[in-house]
Design a protein around this nucleic acid. Structure first.
Lengths: 191, 191
DNA sequence: TGCGTTATCTACCACTTGGTAGGTAAGATA
DNA sequence: TATCTTACCTACCAAGTGGTAGATAACGCA
């Protein structure tokens, strides 16, 4: 735990660097599978130096999740108040698919972490419960005018996307986009 | 790490007790999230006593996975050589769904562990890669006579089931069976 | 140039981890 | 009852954990 040269950064910049590194590491090994020291080493600093910016390991996790949320929701859902129809919903989900294709490590982060966080004792447990509910609600509202049981439809759409992501991570050969289109064709063809 | 009364069991029985306990614990917290001491305590014994039966923590994990496999594949896939048609495939998957509904903790084990094992350094990484491939192949063969692209179909079926399981674990209110039937109706209605 | 702030460091702590060494006691066989 | 095997224990270890205390050095500003 020794740093050869001391590199001093403005706090905002350093925080960003730490969160980016932590995101990668947690995506690979999960939160339980990685240590504060590894977060720090990935930024070329020491554990103690890192703890100056985040008072505990858990705070790093919270930071990572908040950072993703800022970008994610905005980027995909676009409009504050989208038209509540099937076309719009499908288009939004397709944007999500494309976006995810380009950032495998983020997908991995959410996948690994959300499984780990099934444990009620996990620090991100509540975060993922909230997140699931809100994205389901948002999707349900968009499907409301079209599908007879929009709640059920939302569950099935999200389940398929989650499962496809998981399988894509296990085997990156899988053609994510093609499978999504295939599923969506069937799904949105219903009366 | 003190045991009040010493309970001596025949090895087979003790191994079974340990694996059952470890299965539950890993299902809740993942392999990285639980310790040898906890495995042992759950059986009313010490770490050292447990290590007499399994020479390392990793051996416990292997034991847990092998134990599941013995039961699982046999129970669901039934015939050694099932008819390669869509009806048979759907029936087999429906049996799988029913079986899983009755053993949430096993589903949780596979879900949590297979996400954790995306990390190539995880001791169960190779196990899950093999497992994914074989179950996909088996399903693909069953869909061969019916679907124009049985490989793709197998991916989509398994992805949906994985995703639905994940969401069901996050929110047990979800009606697993109904969603499966709904998906299967659309899926198997294709030409 | 000197000074205060603070980002970062070294050194340490209490605790937990997976694992080992060697002793103890339960049960089967004689 | 005496003996052997072995399931299980106590006691320990080295390494790693998250986190703290206090020293040090880089930068902004007078």
């Amino acid at each position: 735990m020794t740093a050869s040269v001391r590199r001093r950064l403005p706090p905002a910049e350093r925080r960003e660097e730490i969160l980016a590194a932590a995101t990668e590491l947690i995506a690979v090994s999960g939160f339980n599978g990685v240590s504060l020291g590894e977060f720090a080493a990935a930024c070329g600093m020491t554990k103690a130096g890192l703890l100056h910016h985040f008072p505990s390991k858990e705070h790093v996790l919270v930071g990572v999740l908040e950072r993703r949320d800022e970008l994610d929701v905005a980027a995909v859902m676009g409009d504050a108040d989208p038209a509540p129809d099937a076309e719009t919903a499908r288009a939004a989900l397709t944007r999500l698919v494309h976006r995810n294709l380009g950032q495998q490590s983020v997908v991995k982060l959410y996948t690994v972490l959300s499984a780990e966080a099934l444990d009620p004792a996990h620090p991100a447990h509540d975060y993922f419960r909230r997140r699931l509910r809100t994205s389901r609600d948002r999707l349900e509202r968009q499907l409301f005018a079209w599908h007879p049981r929009p709640g059920e439809a939302a569950v099935e759409l999200l389940a398929f996307l989650d499962g496809l992501q998981l399988n894509w991570l296990r085997d990156p050969e899988i053609d994510f986009e093609a499978h999504w289109e295939s599923f969506a064709d069937r799904f949105f063809a219903q009366d």
